[in-house]
Amino acid sequence: MIDPHESTARQQHVTSEPANGVMPPPVRRITLDRQPTVALPPSQDAVAIANAGDRSLAAAARPARGIAGPERMTIDGLSVYYGDNHAVKNVSLPIRQGEVLALIGPSGCGKTTLLRTLNRLTELTGSARREGLITLDGEDIDSLEVTEHRRRVSMVFQQPNPFPMSVFDNVAYALREQGSKRPKKKVLEPYVVDALQRAGLYDEVSSNLDHPALRLSGGQQQRLCIARALAARPEVLLMDEPCSALDPKSTNVIEELIVELRKELAIVIVTHNLQQAYRVGDHVAFMYLGDLVEYGPTDQVFDNPQAARTRDYIGGAFG
């Protein structure tokens, strides 16, 4: 809260000493006796429009929903504990090919934990414990060898994290087998180029595949990480807030990429950004304090949320 005395004093101070003979703009105090009305450009903020009840413009601003294919992964009664902390509580969700599942919810609601459980990264945390069944193409993921499973269910992280090697080697790293036999560069090249093309990065880096990956810009680095994740031809791609460290333009490029990629694989994306969930998600799952509160087609969850907590969150009451 602004101290009125101090504020007036500052105002007097400012007005009494014009710097360089130019009068500074007068200090206006902000009064908070009524809610500010913020006018947003209609195509930018789909949620604001959702609240206003006009769907037609928002629908035009986002790409058409994907066509749901067969179910690749099924989460059935999943619970994850960190020690005594029950982070994910009895969640069941389908993950289908050809569509994007967006996980939304406030910080600490368990959405990232849920994502990391899908490719068994939570097992790296010593105190983590898991209950419930996750299947990949009908197989229990616990019965799969963990590295094999992670090649089929790949992940992109919040921070762009290319390895300190060349652009080529970053992508090739995912392809090279763990054994002693390392395939030649010539053999790998078409696969690396293909992965870079699918990630929409090839045109920008084609002339300098040997340059260190860490010299790329943040957005390029993140697309390189996506290329790296795609190189092993995964069936499911997990994305943990892939745009939160990026500028709006790079975010836009990656969102377009996500929409493009969902044709060939199932994508699960965790995001804090409701507009992003609305733009790229085909289904939305809203989580709160470890519970799955609501799951449904994006339009339904944003337009006509069934649960009161979803309504409050999407309306901006908490988050």
Partner: peptide
Amino acid sequence: IPAHVREASYALGKTKAA
């Protein structure tokens, strides 16, 4: 080295040794 760099490698199906 941040933890997510290691996880990025594990997430590609690489072993700890690799």
